[in-house]
Amino acid sequence: MKSKVRPQKGWMWLTLLPLYVFTLLFVLGPLVYMVVLSFLTREEVWGVRLDFTLENYANIFEPVYLRTFWESLKLAFLSTGLVVAIGYPFGYFMAKLTARWKKRVTLFLMIPFWTSSLLRLYGWIIIFRAGGIFDRLLMALHITSEPLKLLYTYPAVVVGMVYALLPFMIFSVYSSAEKLDFSLVEAARDLGASPLKAFLTVSLKLTLPGLFSGLVLTFVPSMGLFFIADILGGNKVVLVGSLIQEQLMKARNWPFAAALSIALLLLTTVFLWLSRRLSKESS
């Protein structure tokens, strides 16, 4: 802000009030509640006792839970990696389409969002189940001779994750690739850069902000999405998200669920911070 501040009218702050109230009530409030909860003791049957303890956090370091975190991280990295590998080129080339085709592609990407994501996952069950569409297709093409039984396997979960997260990456890369001035790429070529070199030094560098915001939009949810693993992975693939849900809804261990959530939050924040650092260094 410049030094010259206009005299505020007495009622101006009122217009901002809803925003503050909303943030306090629905963001900060629950967070504080969760932090407090994570230090409390679980009541045997129902609810919590107001006894301070660090036991919930200590529990996280039990091998079985650490493994869950590790599995979640692995899956998040794998699916985010695939999302980048597919979504970046998709978004990049989408920005080069004619206005008419851009509209069409956008529409095709948007249509699935008009249905509940849960319903769409059930669609994948139909595709993946033994003897489902996918199996029949592969067998019809003589690629496999018997059903692969993909449903409730790790690959099914990965496909589900990639499917759910891909649009976020595509749109985020697209929006920054669209701002890319193509004459810069021509200038690079003119100055002696091969197509690949021109892409790496100019196009990629200038679309990194889109790539990183896409990473945020996909990596963060991929750490927490539990229903994809639940529906497509059966109970074979246990992720932090599912663990939290289980502790909260089934085991009724609220403090431990809260501690797990906080741990997940911290872990995600660390990775976000790291990627921020990386993106700043490279630009």
Binding site: D181, S183, L184, E186, A187, R189, D190, L191, P195, L206
Partner: peptide
């Protein structure tokens, strides 16, 4: 012969300087 292998350089109309 692609542009990078021609002994010619261009000053573009809008300069096309690399902003980064």
């Amino acid at each position: 012969v692609p542009p990078e292998r021609r002994d010619v350089n261009t000053v573009f109309q809008s300069y096309a300087l690399f902003p980064h």
